[in-house]
Nucleic acid binder design. Structure first.
Lengths: 235, 235
DNA sequence: TAGATTGTTAATCGATTAACAATC
DNA sequence: TAGATTGTTAATCGATTAACAATC
């Protein structure tokens, strides 16, 4: 696998696994693809060669019926009387998710959360390569900016975004900046032609059509949990 | 507001805001409640007294029709020809979410992510109070465990979980431990009578009926973004 | 009163489930 | 062949949208 220092290939779908026509996957199924992949990779690591819809459903809290309906979209990987081919499905899901290739990313914001994300191994494992970090407060990472690295990833002042991003061949940005800075950075990233933004700022952003985004709001997740606890069936 | 050092009241619903009967809120609506609350709090801070369904919908990327249908569940806060009372809705949503009171929480795991979460201000702001941190590797936070604090929150060895948790009056745990440790801690927390677990470990956990859980898998979120980028309508 | 916006209904749309024939 | 499990259909269920009467 490429390191952040060797310029990697831009994302390109490989052609060797049966493809699902884009738009063919219903949104509800699409939202489960990442979970399927995670579980199947778990079984793959454990050496399991086939998995039944009931077993996968039990682990994920989904019905066997739903598993079969979802996985049938990828065709060919189930054998009646036997189950699904784990390795084949892993490949098909990675292709469907677009993570069969490599994605170059940048992190914007090196606060508490940003620092944790740089060191998070789960991104690299799934083919997301962090090429650079941009941060507004130089004091945080020492005086000599050009020579500063964290976890092997170079750290730059965010003022240099327009100067440096075009050379990094980056498709995605992870936004971990204060709420007040988020919209401005979305605008700048969009102007620079970024394709996707993973946003951790707890604010609704205005995003142009040319950019896709996913929001992760940790406080909202904790509220979701509170709601579930308060509304749990009495025990 | 209570600090982590003054034992706070356990969560108790206040009775002064019209309640929605539990189970009355459809799951799809429930999943949007936190976002509504975040946006309405944003308007409240800005001094906006009323908000129209079209304006709220535009910000959240939802239809005005859906906003009206959702908010009508809480009754009384809309005025025809005018809009919705922001302050009233904020109160009603907090009550519906169960975050009108205070929740005591513990953090398990003081790795990269755990460290970021301790310092995250968004939790405290929404009424979640971190009472203690439990961590497996003592070396990480100095020799003298009993006197170690981070951000004012005491840090303990996770071996002392059974000894200390019962005295902390805690309802929720935030789980930020390695994948391999997660299931064991779920079992221990369930035995200790915890009500909710916010899980950051990228693994499907087996959770007893007495415990509610919400999973946050950062790699899965990034995959969601990759899927959205790959399947975006051509521009 | 005139204009605006909610609350609510009916119609549409999409997702899930149950069941079983197909087939390994 | 007998048993097991998928693939797929039809039925059910739930969510969203469009439209407009109610009403501020």
């Amino acid at each position: 696998m490429n390191t952040p220092n060797t310029p990697p290939e831009p994302h390109l779908a490989t052609g060797d696994i049966p493809t699902v026509r884009a738009g063919t996957i219903p949104p509800a199924t699409a939202s489960r693809l990442g979970l399927y992949l995670r579980e199947l990779q778990h079984f793959l690591r454990g050496g399991t060669e086939t998995i039944k819809s009931t077993a996968l459903g039990r682990r994920l809290g989904l019905s066997d019926s739903q598993i079969r309906r979802d996985l049938a979209l990828f065709g060919e990987f189930g054998k009646r009387g036997v189950g699904y081919n784990v390795a084949g499905l892993v490949g098909a899901l990675r292709k469907a998710l677009g993570t069969d290739g490599q994605w170059n990313t940048v992190l914007i914001g090196l606060g508490n959360l940003g620092n944790a994300l740089v060191r998070y191994r789960g991104f690299q494992q799934q083919g997301f390569v962090l090429r650079a970090i941009f941060e507004a407060e130089a004091a945080k990472f020492g005086a000599n900016l050009t020579d500063t690295h964290i976890n092997g990833v170079p750290v730059y002042d965010v003022q240099r975004l327009e100067e440096l991003l075009p050379g990094l061949n980056v498709q995605m940005a992870i936004l971990a900046v204060p709420t007040t800075a988020a919209q401005g950075l979305v605008n700048r990233l969009a102007d620079l032609g970024i394709s996707g933004i993973l946003n951790f700022a707890p604010v609704s952003l205005s995003i142009p059509d040319s950019v896709q985004s996913v929001d992760v709001d940790l406080a909202v997740e904790l509220q979701r949990l509170a709601f579930a606890v308060v509304n749990a069936a009495p025990r």
